[in-house]
Simulated assay, not measured.
Amino acid sequence: MSLRHRSTDRPLPRQRQPELEHDYARSPALGYESPQEAGFIRCLDHGFPTPLARWHYHDEYELHLIVATSGKAFVGDWIGQFQPGHLVLTGPRLPHNWISLDLPEGGVALRDRVIQFRHEPLAQAAEAIPEVAEMQPLLERSRNGIEFFGLSERAALHFDRVRASHGLERLAAFIAFMSDLVRCTDYRLLSSVQLQSSEDDATLERINAVVSQVTQNVAHPMALGDFAAQLGMSESRFSRLFKRATGNTFVDFVNRVRINRACQLLMESERAITHICYEVGFNNVANFNRRFLEIKGMTPSEFRRQAENRFGGRDASTPSR
């Protein structure tokens, strides 16, 4: 009986889920510091192309500065442009990748400057040291990915100082870097929505309960009046509090949550766009397409095409944006 040979010409299906980066894979040959050098703060410089540039995530925070080339950045469900000076902080387990589209022949020796650090030591230190606790809001925002503006030159100096130092001196250089990021007010969150408010804790807790219901039940009908009644508020008072707490009107927030869920399904499944539309709570495809374009700046089909590039491939049919 003859053996059947699988065709080597047929490409294997891509793993749509991001790859988890393990510590044992962080070889100095790829640009990582050796385990003997790296303590709580690990530095990494690498060029492009490289095996490190892939759709992946890890348990550490990652501070990422692009110093050469431009192209497409993928952070969670966000897709955007990058160029030299692009500075981003990603939180634990937030998938990301940067794909250069203007490489010179042979690539570049240095494209990315990276600092990785873990959550637990900072969380423990924050309990005893108020100054360290000042970083907590920044770290919480980073779980959505933060792009900073106007800091590229200072960031390059900070990266030099952190990379060149060790021990307590490195910790001091790292804290100085984080202090600049904490004070930076010119930034944007990249992936999904996050509560930001100066409301009292009791009010925030009530609004947060509404946010949790919305995010966990995206396909259910979402009537502002129902949530207002649930909290014992008039619709107008609920609307004002919700807008102050989230930065969005209730309707805009619901649309954003649904679109973010749609982005996840577009990236991680091959479901038809019409099916995704209804699965995330929209009643008709035209409204879904309109809201998607408003929030993401592209159509669902274009988002899916561009999202494929997070693996490192190029789709020549996708226009640059």
Rank of each mutant, 00 (worst) to 15 (best):
R16M: 14
P18F: 07
P18C: 08
E19L: 15
D23A: 11
D23Q: 10
A25Y: 07
P28Q: 05
G31W: 01
E33D: 08
Q36T: 02
G39N: 01
L52E: 12
A53H: 13
W55H: 09
E60R: 04
L63S: 04
S70K: 15
K72W: 09
F74V: 13
F74L: 11
Q81V: 05
F82I: 11
P84H: 09
V88E: 04
G91N: 11
P92Q: 01
S100T: 06
D102M: 04
D102I: 01
E105F: 00
G106H: 01
Q116F: 14
F117H: 06
A125D: 00
E127D: 06
V132Q: 04
V132H: 03
M135C: 10
P137S: 09
L139N: 03
E140C: 07
E140W: 07
E140S: 11
S142Q: 12
R143C: 13
N144D: 03
N144R: 14
I146D: 02
I146A: 05
A156G: 11
R163F: 05
R163Y: 06
A164E: 09
G167K: 00
G167W: 00
L171K: 07
F174Y: 05
F174W: 07
I175Q: 03
A176K: 10
M178E: 14
C184G: 01
R188D: 09
S192G: 09
S192H: 11
S192V: 04
S198K: 15
D201P: 07
A202L: 14
R206T: 02
V211A: 02
V218L: 09
A219C: 10
H220F: 11
P221K: 10
L224Y: 08
G232N: 04
M233N: 08
L241D: 10
A245R: 02
N248M: 13
F250M: 02
D252V: 06
I259K: 03
I259T: 15
I259A: 15
C263D: 06
L266K: 01
C277P: 03
Y278T: 15
F288K: 13
R290V: 06
T299A: 11
Q306H: 13
R314L: 06
S317Y: 04
